[in-house]
Design a binder for these strands. Structure first.
Length: 337
DNA sequence: CGCCAGGCGAACA
DNA sequence: TGTTCGCATGGC
């Protein structure tokens, strides 16, 4: 059965085929929440896989900010429940962010049929790529250089608290935030302060807002030498010198070149933005983990030259190479323990 | 304490 | 064209 045919969402117990209006599927008694029917979707693995940095595990649920909206997500089997702070007219913004319409089986079928890929796919069934907003994604990955994921989360949280707009949040968030029982169960939580301050959470700050910052202000977010990179990128976007919305229609190579014009954005960071924000599936970010995985899994005898490794990375993984990369990344990361 | 972290860019041979 | 280093900051 085709996964597309089975995707839809539920109103109460009634499955609704994909394609019908969101209003039908939303709970009529509460337009702040809805439930999507998903297949081959591991929400926890996806949200914790180092592609987005604002999701926090809260007990069995995940809380984050998408498109300026606070959201709580909870998966139970094939039911993915979403809850917002304010009523929603539709949910396409979340469906798009979570990439619910992607047929994962069809994507995985394009991966090379070799042992490392089989092991990677087996190790993380249901791992997905998100579709993030370009500006947030760009800033996040400029901050990512020589930083651990926990630290990137911390920098982004500080940026949002200091410079983002306060947005509405569900009434029970504070109770959950201070509920150490649920939150502290996750080891990563201890290192990341909750970006809930008082009754507020914060949207990701606009380019204009960050462009108005001084470098010293940005440095208070613990981003160190990356501060001038962020500031320059913010100015480029705020002035219109760089129009991020135009990159969607460019080829991967053209969009990559445009991103790499920014100071602090090299091949790896550019490819992360191409993959995680623009859905350019042929982008293949090679970081230390993926590099390690490639060498260990595909070149165990003799260390390949940089050129050979790059050529292999760019040719071996097919039309959804970036997707394959995320599986390799997750695989070696979970194998660390 | 030393080492490393989802790198990049400048300075070298 | 291909390596080497410094860069802030924090976790272990």
């Amino acid at each position: 059965m085709n996964a597309n045919e089975t995707q839809g969402r539920r109103c109460g117990e009634t499955p609704v085929p994909y394609g019908l209006s969101e209003a039908i599927c939303a709970d009529p008694r509460d337009s702040r929440a809805t439930t999507f029917l998903v297949r081959d979707y591991d929400l926890a693995a996806t949200l914790a896989s180092g592609q987005a940095f604002r999701w926090r595990p809260m007990g069995d649920a995940w809380e984050g900010i998408v498109a300026g909206r606070w959201v709580r997500l909870h998966q139970a089997g094939d039911d993915l429940r979403a809850e917002c702070a304010v009523p929603q007219a539709d949910w396409h913004w979340l469906r798009d962010y979570l990439q619910l319409d992607v047929d994962l089986a069809a994507v995985v079928a394009t991966f090379p049929d070799d042992e490392p890929m089989r092991a990677s796919v087996a190790a993380c069934r249901g791992l997905r790529l998100l579709r993030q907003e370009p500006w947030e994604c760009l800033v996040s990955f400029i901050c990512s250089s020589t930083k651990q994921i926990v630290q990137i989360q911390q920098i982004i949280a500080l940026l949002c608290e200091r410079f983002g707009e306060a947005i509405p949040v569900a009434a029970d968030v504070r109770r959950l935030s201070s509920n150490a029982e649920g939150a502290m169960r996750n080891a990563e939580w201890k290192a990341v302060p909750p970006d809930v301050v008082g009754d507020s959470v914060f949207a990701f700050p606009s380019a204009a807002r960050l462009a108005a910052c001084s470098e010293a202000e940005l440095r208070t977010c613990k981003m160190g030498f990356r501060a001038p990179y962020i500031l320059a990128a913010a100015k480029a976007v705020a002035t219109g010198q760089l129009d991020l919305s135009l990159l969607q229609n460019l080829s991967t190579a053209e969009a990559r070149a445009a991103l790499m014009n920014l100071h602090g954005v090299g091949r790896k960071i550019a490819d992360c933005v191409l993959l995680f924000a623009y859905g350019k599936q042929d982008a293949f970010p090679v970081d230390v983990w993926v590099r390690r995985a490639l060498i260990e899994l595909y070149f165990p005898r003799r260390r390949p030259s940089e050129k050979r490794l790059a050529h292999f990375a760019n040719t071996h993984f097919g039309p959804n190479a970036g997707f394959a990369q995320q599986y390799l990344f997750h695989y070696v990361r979970v194998r660390r323990e």
